[in-house]
Amino acid sequence: MRASTFRRLMNLWPPFLFNSIRVQHVAEDWSELKVVLRLRPWNRNYVRTQFGGNLFAMTDPFWMLLAMHQLGDDYYVWDKAGAIDFVAPGREDVYAHFRLSASMVDELRIAAANGEKVLRWFDVPVTTASGEVVARVRKQLYVRLKPKARAEAPAETCATCE
């Protein structure tokens, strides 16, 4: 699927659409993604700030999806764990910017080359437009080379990993 098509579909997905979560940008190579959570009357909590569940939801699937698309069909990629640290009240629209570098993708490929599971943590801050951190979200990914690809995979080395 093209990144631009994915962005449009995610913006129509009911959990995002009805909670004012919008994917603003997805890089064509799946290395970067930007998302915004608009503060609206229907998604505020009791004290009129961003609802914590929406702060987590706006970040939930994206590390996994970026990794899946960059690694390709030979890998299982799943969310394993997640955590959120609420730093300040979100009294306005908030943003998250995900970047999955080529070197990190190489590290995941090398770590999974022998068929063992790989667990890696990824962090993203949720910020206001001015850069104030509202929350820090951590997601742990499970990555594993699929059995059919293990038999075909030659041993790889990574110049940046040594």
Rank of each mutant, 00 (worst) to 15 (best):
M1A: 14
A3W: 00
R7N: 05
M10N: 01
N11F: 11
N11R: 12
N11V: 09
W13H: 10
P14L: 08
P15A: 12
N19I: 10
V23L: 02
Q24T: 05
D29H: 15
V36S: 05
W42I: 11
V47Y: 10
R48D: 13
T49S: 14
F51G: 04
G53C: 05
N54G: 07
L55G: 02
L55T: 03
A57P: 04
M58A: 05
F62D: 01
M64W: 05
L71Y: 01
D74C: 13
Y75Q: 12
D79S: 09
K80W: 02
G82K: 03
I84E: 04
I84W: 02
V87I: 11
A88G: 10
G90M: 04
E92R: 07
E92H: 12
D93H: 09
R99W: 07
L100W: 01
S101L: 12
S101V: 11
V105T: 02
D106W: 03
I110M: 09
I110S: 15
E116I: 09
V118Y: 00
L119Y: 04
W121R: 10
V126P: 00
S130W: 13
G131K: 06
G131A: 12
V133D: 08
V134E: 01
V137A: 00
L141I: 04
K146E: 09
K148H: 08
T157G: 08
T157R: 08
T157E: 15
C158A: 14
C158P: 14
C161L: 07
C161P: 06
